[in-house]
Simulated assay, not measured.
Amino acid sequence: MKSLGSIRRSFAPWSDPAAKPYIVFENVTKRFGDFTAVNDLSLSIFEREFFALLGASGCGKSTLLRMLAGFDEPTSGRILLDGQDLRGIPPYKRPVNMMFQSYALFPHMTVENNIAFGLKQEGMAKADIEKRVADMLKLVKLEQFAKRKPHQLSGGQRQRVALARSVAKRPKVLLLDEPLGALDKKLREETQFELMDLQQELGLTFVVVTHDQEEAMTMADRIAILDKGEVMQVATPTEVYEAPASRFVAGFVGNVNMFEGKVASRDAGSARISGGNGLTIKTENAGDASAGSDVVFAIRPEKIKVSSKKPADAEANVAEGEIYDIAYLGDMTVYHVRLADGQVVKASSLNAVRISEDPLSWNDRAWISFRPDAGVVLTR
């Protein structure tokens, strides 16, 4: 069996029919007055999974997190954690902890006292608190900052303190609401990997809310893409990117080119599609498209090759156009190629060598081409 892309780890309980989900949203609806934030949503999350809720503002992802934490109750439906219905159980009695984007650290307390706060509230013995705090400081690599106060720390360090405080009580589930939103780009990228390593080390179930596609793709084992309170697709990052379930998902995650067309013929998993510009598309990923149906062929920019000459013996998956724009990004170059009917196709090329053998410039005539397995047919 061929893989769609790189596999980060073999962990995949969702593919085992006998595996029991750890968290279950069962036909959950949440209304605020006349506004429906979550609409009859069902979703399963497995133990030890790093799960991301991804979507634009107002899609319902934070509402889901708040209902799981106990800050809001569903209007209808059930939320189960390890088989237990959470309805009516207050937040402080749920085996979950939530880390907010603002971190919500106590400014008058030292780092170690911030971490210890929840443990003291639970009445843990002083010696046990000291050991647990020491373990948490070591875990987030902040031992030398134990006596400092939040204002004496960088944004990344405050984020680690909030994380240490969140996991100090050893919850079964850690909920993270836009946890890296306050960090700069470079620190955010570094912290993503630290969170992944920490989740693996602790063996906890992480549920993260984010609007950042790259963040979700980097950290999560699976991603639920939400829109208007409904789930559009639940899949691994690779599946979401390489095999989107709909036009919405294809357009929401990453960059994509979409060609409208009609299925001229079907043969097993392959299809021949007649598109605009006289473009004929031959694809090996026809999905459930039937002959004669109107479809969209979606393909990512990095799967399209741009050249000054027509590829030899090309009778499909090739079209001529004009270089409309070029963006040199260092590691790659992005071309915008305008086809005969005005559609602009985006193609990206990795700058693997310092000198191009086929230089292209603005207003040059150029050919785009792609392999039969490079894109996917979408019927919805």
Rank of each mutant, 00 (worst) to 15 (best):
L350H: 11
D72Q: 13
T36Y: 05
I299P: 05
A69M: 03
I129D: 03
R78Q: 12
F297H: 01
R222C: 09
R247D: 13
Q101Y: 10
K120P: 09
T218E: 09
G5L: 14
G55R: 10
V256P: 10
F46A: 07
V167Y: 05
Q233V: 06
M136V: 05
V334P: 03
F248L: 00
S270F: 13
A162Y: 01
G156E: 08
F46W: 12
D72E: 11
P95M: 05
R160Q: 07
F106E: 02
L65G: 03
A316H: 05
A271H: 09
E320W: 03
G330S: 01
S42L: 07
Y324L: 15
K310M: 10
I225T: 00
L81M: 13
T110C: 02
D177L: 03
P301D: 05
F71T: 00
T333E: 11
S369L: 02
R170T: 01
L187A: 01
D341R: 02
M219E: 06
S274C: 12
T283L: 04
D135A: 14
A125L: 04
L183H: 11
V161K: 14
G203T: 12
L180E: 05
P244H: 12
Q84P: 07
G261T: 08
P372E: 10
F117T: 03
A268T: 13
T283C: 11
I225A: 02
L176H: 11
S15H: 14
I304C: 04
D135G: 13
A243S: 14
K2D: 13
P90S: 14
V133H: 07
Y328P: 10
T191Y: 00
A12M: 06
A319G: 02
A352G: 00
A298Q: 01
T280G: 11
K149T: 08
G375F: 02
D294Y: 05
A168T: 04
R66F: 12
R380N: 15
F106T: 00
S10F: 04
P311F: 10
E239P: 00
G70L: 13
V24T: 07
G261W: 01
L339K: 11
R354K: 15
A104W: 06
G375K: 08
A347M: 03
L174A: 08
